[in-house]
């Protein structure tokens, strides 16, 4: 199966790989996994004073599409409010990366990671 140029770009030059301090009260961490493919994804967001996401980091062990989906999501999240972040749909990720039907679940995983990170952040407030 051929990856799209956008997937390859994110796969070869992943944006925002790394970690934020998970104990920081302004950092939300989302850990999600897909047993079917064994992918594990960690997404972290940091909320600024103004209620805007000022930083996002990810670490993903999985296929190219899973890495690209989480990399793209970190770019999308920066500058958004939590409400805006929560409304990001997997279809937008899949469309942007031109994911084939068999890889749609990678974008679903990324959406789940956003929701989990927001939930974690809210539970700290």
């Amino acid at each position: 199966m051929a990856y799209s140029d956008k997937v390859l770009d994110h796969y070869e030059n992943p944006r925002n790989v790394g970690s934020l301090d998970k104990d920081d009260p302004n950092v939300g961490t989302g850990m999600v996994g897909a047993p079917a493919c064994g992918d594990v994804m960690k997404l972290q967001i940091k909320l600024g004073e103004n209620g805007i996401i000022e930083d996002a980091k990810f670490k993903t062990y999985g296929c190219g599409s899973a890495i690209a989906s989480s990399s793209l999501v970190t770019e999308m999240l920066k500058g958004k409010t939590l409400d805006e972040a929560e409304s990001i749909k997997n279809s937008a990720i899949a469309e942007e990366l031109a994911l084939p039907p068999v890889k749609i679940h990678c974008s679903v995983l990324a959406e789940d990671a956003i929701k989990a990170a927001i939930e974690d952040l809210k539970s700290k407030k």
């Binding site: 850990m31 999600v32 996994g33 047993p35 594990v40 960690k42 670490k59 062990y61 989990a116």
Partner: peptide, 18 residues
């Protein structure tokens, strides 16, 4: 059905293995 939800603590451990 097999649950889709995986315990986050478990996933952290998996990531540490990776």
């Amino acid at each position: 059905e097999i649950t889709n939800h995986t315990n986050p603590e478990f996933l952290i451990k998996q990531m540490e293995y990776e």
